[in-house]
Design a binder for these strands. Sequence first.
DNA 1: CCGCATCCGGGGCGATACTG
DNA 2: CAGTATCGCCCCGGATGCGG
Lengths: 220, 220
Amino acid sequence: MKSYQQYCAVAKALDVVGDRWALLIVRELLAFGPSRYIDLERGLPGIASNLLVARLKSMEADGLIERRLAAPPIGAKVYELTPRGRALDSVLRALAGWGVPAMSEGPAEADAVQPQWSAVFAGLTLTPAPREDRPVVIGLETGNTSVRAVLHGDGSFHVARGLEGDVDVSMSGSALLIGGVLSGQLSPTEATRLGLVVTGRAELLEQLTAAASTRTEVAS
Amino acid sequence: MKSYQQYCAVAKALDVVGDRWALLIVRELLAFGPSRYIDLERGLPGIASNLLVARLKSMEADGLIERRLAAPPIGAKVYELTPRGRALDSVLRALAGWGVPAMSEGPAEADAVQPQWSAVFAGLTLTPAPREDRPVVIGLETGNTSVRAVLHGDGSFHVARGLEGDVDVSMSGSALLIGGVLSGQLSPTEATRLGLVVTGRAELLEQLTAAASTRTEVAS
DNA sequence: CCGCATCCGGGGCGATACTG
DNA sequence: CAGTATCGCCCCGGATGCGG
């Protein structure tokens, strides 16, 4: 991206991450952690392959990401955020918070829907996790794909593909309902009445989102 | 901007403010409040006039800004943020915070420098203002332009052009030094030793930035 | 001077095809 | 799977023009 050539913190930030797709690549890496090329491509429907490569190269040159080989026996090339790249989570949180009102009417006809995009709210509004001695795992299913969002006690979180392993509670249904619950705008009971299917420790979900809605009120 | 067509809060936000120059226009309007076309143009060196007009139109269509006629006897057309547009301040704060490290080496040869860009730190790190019954006014001078940053007790702030009226304390010198002090990375005394000229109630500046540096430590 | 509108060259972007 | 190559197109940048 051409520099704005302004000695301003906002302009300098946009010089680096103002390019199209750049912040969405960071979104994927923040959610899933180290990712292979194909996984990034799948998480960014609509991106052209040359653009994805170009962004990854410039982001590496800017010190936001690193290419690494995953530990054996995987051995695949993976892209990973540096601490500097991970520091963009505050920017993504702010953008996500601001973008929520634009989602109130549900996905448009042509919109792609992937559950990890709703999972970012888990780190946005649900943290910190309640007093549990192990991380809370929330399963998310929309359409044919499913992920699990893992909330740690310190407020951090990450997302993993599939539903293998222990899942404390899981939600299945439209992205609008799941996103509504995770963003604290819709109570789990209300969402259930509207068609959301909750399995597992439903009371855990109530606790997490109860804290979330008070938070949102305070913030606004 | 072409929509990402992803049902994701971040993508929806970028659909609206992901265009080049868009967030920098918001920066100017957040700093100065309602502004005329020519003032926006001056605060955005490098922007082409057709682009500025195009952005203003699409931002108006998206409900971020409104065109109004300033109160008589001025009567000039001004652009003003709506509440929805003002809500982008959290995004700009996050971007500014992330962009600070990119400014540590001072402005590049070709970089434009305008004091209001350093003033955004006043709202970023200096709030809330200390116990004063009236707003604190800080004068800022870099090169040939000067502004005053007005900090209100509730944490809000705005910037006005010129140095007319009462100024509690003012700083004059390089943008690197002024920005360093306002962002809490440099103490006023240290900056003075490096060439910053402080006039007026210097002790007020000490108080404000002392609070700022503890804040930054907490945040990081 | 202010507030745009119009034109035109260059590059970023999007889609597809292709390859080790 | 992980990219590279190519080719329109449209956005962007810079300039000029023009009514109020």
